[in-house]
Design a protein around this nucleic acid. Structure first.
Lengths: 220, 220
DNA sequence: CCGAGCTTGTGCACAAGTTCACAAGCGTGT
DNA sequence: ACACGCTTGTGAACTTGTGCACAAGCTCGG
């Protein structure tokens, strides 16, 4: 009923998928209603934060009762744009690339593996996950055939920028970078980075300084 | 010379490994000195932020000159506690666990794979990465033999908390959780979470709302 | 020995995120 | 119809993080 078009803060956006995961679990357990307090407990955050986060969705709960799980689930999927599947194209069929391609956790949550590509002709044709590795030259075609698609960079650091440029040229507008390197893309292309070794180093820091260690600052 | 014991903000800690990676690259290129501006460019952040971050280390640069790469590298490793290797024990030899175990990026950056364990007897004895899968019952012994060790949870969500409890009982004080579930640990145990599907969902959000998308909010 | 040209380190103002605390509103029972 | 208990939604205080702008300090050339 309202314009509801408040801008959603980045910090909130980062928490929405966690709420989504929890709502899916609650729905599976046939739980019809949930309070912000219960949600907060399940997500490991503060109840006031949950309420404020949800209020950005324009999704209203019912005072004295809580939130309707199914309705909130619908709203959340809507907000996150995960009402349809987003196919994923993995670039790089090395250890990490094969790992990601094999990881069922993607398909299960709405991100089916569309293709794996690699520059190395020796790898082209081998099977990874459930698809055959294709040459880089097929990239543009693969992207066109699966739009909208998310590109995953699973190459060594030094070629990450090059790959990103090729993804963008091929029409990919969302990129997840696993390579340990800075990658820049044009504005309005979404980019996120995950660096596994980096996470371990952060853990190492908090261990070394473990007097008042709030390492669980993360968000879990 | 100074007490230098300022508490380092979480936001700064999260950036230190990125600086470390860049410094390693600079040192490999035999570059002796770097300015905050150059470092900022390489890390994709603001120069003032770099200077403020480095100032927390008690590491001083030289005005008019910049920072000595080797000295800063030393200080950074010291601060992060990565002067020695941290062996990693992976729990779960499923797709994700095998993936992580095979990923060379860990060993290369000071986190050698010490062991992989799994509850499934059918998997015990098979080889993953460079080690044989061991039964869960060996966990405590493996941890003792490799202390200090980092535990990596690569199991399905529902058993993540159980595994975390076993890791803690075995003496692990730092845990990286890849399972899509909330895990809680006693204070002074460090815990971080990485959820791959979650990252994809965040990308999905920024794509769906792509008018003024600042998805690269991440930190790259 | 002094001045010019850089670059650091940091005080300060501002922006973003978090948490508290409470009024507003819903539902139930009497 | 009304009062009571519960839970939301949000203003406001507070904490954390960011970025500007500039004084302090180093180096080099003359």
């Amino acid at each position: 009923m309202d314009g509801h078009a408040r801008r959603i803060p980045d910090a909130t956006v980062a928490r929405l998928p966690e709420y989504l995961r929890i709502l899916v679990e609650l729905a599976e357990q046939r739980i019809g209603t949930v309070s912000s307090e219960r949600l907060a407990e399940l997500a490991g955050v503060n109840a006031a934060k949950v309420r404020k986060d949800l209020s950005y969705l324009g999704t209203y709960g019912t005072r004295g009762v809580g939130y309707d799980v199914d309705y909130l689930l619908f709203q959340m999927r809507q907000a996150l744009g995960v009402t349809q599947d987003w196919p994923v194209v993995v670039v790089g069929a090395g250890n990490l690339g094969r790992a990601l391609a094999n990881y069922a956790g993607f398909s299960d949550r709405g991100f089916p593996l569309a293709a794996v590509v690699d520059v190395d002709d020796a790898k082209v044709g081998t099977t990874v996950g459930e698809v055959a590795v294709r040459p880089m030259s097929d990239l543009a075609e693969l992207v066109r055939a699966n739009q909208p698609v998310i590109g995953v960079i699973a190459t060594p650091g030094p070629v990450a920028q090059l790959v990103a440029d090729q993804l963008v040229a091929a029409g990919v507008t969302a990129i997840l970078n696993f390579a340990p390197a800075l990658v820049s893309v044009p504005p309005n292309i979404s980019l996120r980075k995950v660096d596994l070794a980096l996470e371990l180093q952060i853990l190492s820091f908090y261990q070394s300084h473990r007097e008042s260690g709030s390492a669980s600052r993360s968000w879990a």
